Simulated scan of single mutants.
Amino acid sequence: MQIVDFIAANSSWSWIVAGLVLLALELVVPGGFLLWMGVAGIITGILTFWVVISWPLQWLIFGVLSLVTIALWVRWNRGRQAASDRPYLNRRTDGLIGQEAVLEQPIVQGFGRIALGDTVWRVSGPDLPAGRRVRIVGSTGAVLAVEALPN
């Protein structure tokens, strides 16, 4: 009971310490949620320095601040795109769109082959003879869609 009385007597500092503990836990269990709950705890502690608030209302303030800060963080985090030094790492075919190549094998019944670098790619498009220049215009899986270039 002495601990509960001590926490009740020092509610402002209790919230601040709880917020700092939540911030420290964020380092161990990453994910972002404990970070914003820690911020809400610290804000609740600072608020109780100036205004005398009952315990149930303090918990309500903490809960609402936690939900609001987490919701804002999730909304902001989903809206931003992660920058990458390799934007086509797992979408290799997207990086080939717009390139020009020469057909290694003719496109017969909608499919043929081209060589790009050290890789031979299956292509789809209109029937064309081998040696014809084509431009890559899209992809479906690992099959590149091509169109004929004017001679």
Rank of each mutant, 00 (worst) to 15 (best):
M1W: 02
Q2C: 00
Q2Y: 08
Q2T: 12
I3S: 10
I3M: 07
I3Q: 12
V4D: 02
V4N: 00
V4Q: 01
F6Y: 11
F6D: 03
F6I: 06
A8G: 03
A9S: 08
N10L: 03
S11G: 13
W13V: 13
S14H: 04
W15M: 09
I16L: 06
A18Q: 00
G19L: 09
G19E: 03
L20N: 04
V21C: 01
L22E: 10
L22A: 14
L22Q: 07
A24Q: 02
L25C: 14
E26Y: 06
L27Y: 03
G31K: 00
G32S: 10
F33S: 07
F33Q: 00
W36H: 15
W36S: 13
M37E: 01
M37T: 10
M37V: 09
V39A: 06
A40K: 07
I43T: 14
F49G: 11
F49M: 13
F49C: 12
F49N: 11
W50C: 11
V51M: 05
I53S: 05
S54E: 10
P56C: 03
P56H: 05
P56A: 02
L57G: 02
W59I: 01
F62R: 00
G63C: 00
V64A: 10
V68F: 10
I70K: 08
A71E: 01
L72E: 02
L72G: 08
L72M: 12
L72P: 10
W73V: 14
V74S: 09
W76Q: 14
G79D: 05
G79S: 10
Q81R: 13
Q81S: 14
A82K: 08
A83R: 11
S84L: 05
D85T: 11
P87T: 08
Y88D: 15
Y88K: 06
Y88M: 10
Y88I: 08
L89Q: 15
N90S: 08
R91W: 04
R91P: 04
T93R: 01
D94W: 00
G95L: 01
Q99D: 14
A101T: 13
A101H: 09
A101E: 08
A101K: 11
V102L: 01
V102A: 02
L103S: 03
G110A: 11
F111I: 14
G112E: 05
G112D: 05
R113Q: 10
I114A: 04
L116K: 07
G117A: 02
W121T: 13
V123G: 06
L128A: 07
A130Y: 03
A130P: 04
A130C: 02
A130V: 03
A130S: 10
G131I: 00
R132K: 05
R132N: 03
R132E: 14
R133P: 02
R133Q: 09
R133G: 01
R135E: 13
I136G: 06
V137L: 13
G138Y: 08
G138V: 08
T140M: 12
G141H: 13
G141S: 11
G141V: 03
G141R: 07
G141C: 11
G141A: 13
V143H: 02
V146R: 03
V146Q: 03
E147L: 07
E147A: 10
A148N: 07
L149Y: 10
L149S: 15
P150R: 04
N151G: 12
N151V: 07
